[in-house]
Computed example of a mutant assay.
Amino acid sequence: MVQITFKNNPVTLLGNEVKVGDKAPEFTVLANDLSPVTLQTDAGKVRLFSVVPSLDTGVCDAQTRKFNEAAAELGDDVVIYTVSVDLPFAQKRWCGDAGIEAVKTVSDHRDLSFGQAYGVAIEELRLLARAVFVVDKDDKVTYVEYVSEATDHPNYEGAIDAVKALK
């Protein structure tokens, strides 16, 4: 069972812990235009899911920018998603203001489908815990990081190296 804190206070994660080697769980989130996005939306590609509590915070902003920069070197057969519970309209505005074009922001605000499928929904806050998942072209999970303190940065290099290892 994954244990994390948010501002050094323990929180309860809903859903199941995902481990390396697992088949990636299905989910439904919303794109910025309110269309549904599922695990199969980019089937056959390597997918990196960067999970953040809210784009309107410093670490989440930096995390999304870092993966946006990495996207250019990873190529067209890799899709990077930033998943949060921010409303799709807020995500679209944030991306425009931040010049984010390579990362796809998706919202789990409606029913916490991603959060529960990947064990990152924080019960007390209705936010998502910070985490990174890499899923290969065959929907197998090859990298997992649940960041133990939700206000800390993930291991960017570890996640990017995991994607590169699949190319």
Rank of each mutant, 00 (worst) to 15 (best):
V103I: 09
I80N: 10
H109A: 14
L87H: 07
D97M: 14
A150G: 14
V79I: 10
V79F: 13
G75I: 12
L74S: 14
N32Y: 06
A70L: 04
T28D: 04
T38F: 03
T38I: 12
V85R: 15
N68W: 02
G119E: 10
A129F: 03
T41S: 12
E124G: 06
W94N: 09
V106W: 00
N32K: 14
H109N: 13
Q63F: 08
V51D: 09
V51E: 04
D76C: 06
H109C: 12
G99F: 05
V83S: 01
L74Y: 01
S50G: 15
V144N: 15
L34T: 13
L74K: 07
L48S: 07
T57Y: 08
G115L: 01
L128N: 06
V141I: 11
V79K: 05
A70F: 01
G58F: 13
T64H: 10
W94F: 10
A117C: 05
L34P: 06
V52W: 04
Y118C: 00
R65E: 06
V120D: 01
S50A: 05
D86A: 07
D61F: 03
V147D: 00
E149W: 09
F67K: 13
E73I: 07
T142Y: 03
F133R: 05
W94Q: 00
R126A: 08
E124P: 11
